[in-house]
Simulated scan of single mutants.
Amino acid sequence: MIPKIIQGGDFSDHRGTISFVNDFSFKDIERFYIISNSDENPIRAWQGHKLDAKNFYCLNGSFKIHFVKIDNWENPSKDLIVETIIVSASDSKIVHIPSGYANAIESLEKDSKLISFSTLPLSNVSDDDVRFVADYWKING
């Protein structure tokens, strides 16, 4: 499986706005959390997931979601291609990053918030989560 964007939309009238991503299924979601990076450290990098798939939706502000397909969990190549997708609160979409990838989350605005839906139960996270130093892969502009 490859990363993909699940596009949503919004509807506005005199009562306000409803944002939605109707093609996203919660069938395999086990938990969620909300990410707010500090102003001093706007990049949270790199977290790899052997089994867990991540689904990101921007609640406020905007983010760059960087990701790499891991070639070897014990010693991944430093030459892996970093791909990037921008998400913002004004564009209702979910970015699906399947298992087998590492990701980095970069906030682009003050007070940005990102919700992450995870497919792995919390009891299995210690077997799945692989951390890499923040500069393991170069993030381009």
Rank of each mutant, 00 (worst) to 15 (best):
W46Y: 10
S107P: 00
N37V: 07
R15S: 05
I81P: 07
I6E: 02
A45Q: 02
D111M: 09
R31Y: 15
S112W: 03
V130L: 08
L114A: 03
G141M: 09
S92Q: 04
E30F: 06
N41V: 13
F32L: 12
D13K: 01
T84M: 13
D13R: 00
E109I: 07
E40R: 14
Y57D: 01
Y57K: 00
E106N: 06
V130G: 07
I65V: 09
T119F: 04
K27W: 14
K27R: 14
A104R: 01
F56V: 03
P3R: 07
N103K: 09
E106T: 08
I6F: 04
D91P: 07
P98D: 07
K113E: 12
P3Y: 10
S118F: 07
D111S: 13
M1R: 06
I81E: 11
D10M: 14
D111K: 11
V21K: 07
N55R: 03
Q7F: 11
S36E: 15
S77R: 01
V87L: 15
S19Y: 14
S25L: 12
V95Q: 01
S112G: 06
I86D: 10
Q47W: 09
K110N: 09
P42S: 10
A45G: 13
I85S: 04
R131M: 13
I70G: 00
G48H: 00
T119Y: 04
S25A: 14
S92Y: 02
K138C: 10
K50M: 10
T119G: 08
S92H: 03
G16Q: 04
Q47V: 08
I86M: 10
D111R: 09
P42V: 10
Q47S: 15
N55Q: 07
S126T: 15
S88M: 05
N140Q: 14
V95F: 12
C58H: 00
K50L: 13
H66P: 01
D111H: 11
S19N: 12
F56R: 04
K110H: 10
D79M: 10
D79K: 15
Q47C: 13
T119I: 06
E83L: 05
N37R: 10
Y136E: 04
W137L: 06
N140R: 11
P98I: 06
H96K: 10
E74H: 07
S12E: 11
P98S: 06
I105F: 05
F32M: 12
I5D: 07
L108Y: 05
K64Q: 08
F32C: 13
F56L: 13
Y57N: 00
K93R: 14
I70D: 01
L80Q: 01
I94N: 00
K50P: 08
L108I: 05
K93E: 08
N37W: 07
I43W: 04
F117R: 06
K64V: 03
S126Y: 15
P98Y: 11
N41C: 10
S36T: 13
S107G: 04
V21H: 12
P42M: 08
T17W: 09
V82L: 03
D129M: 12
N103Y: 13
W46Q: 01
F32N: 12
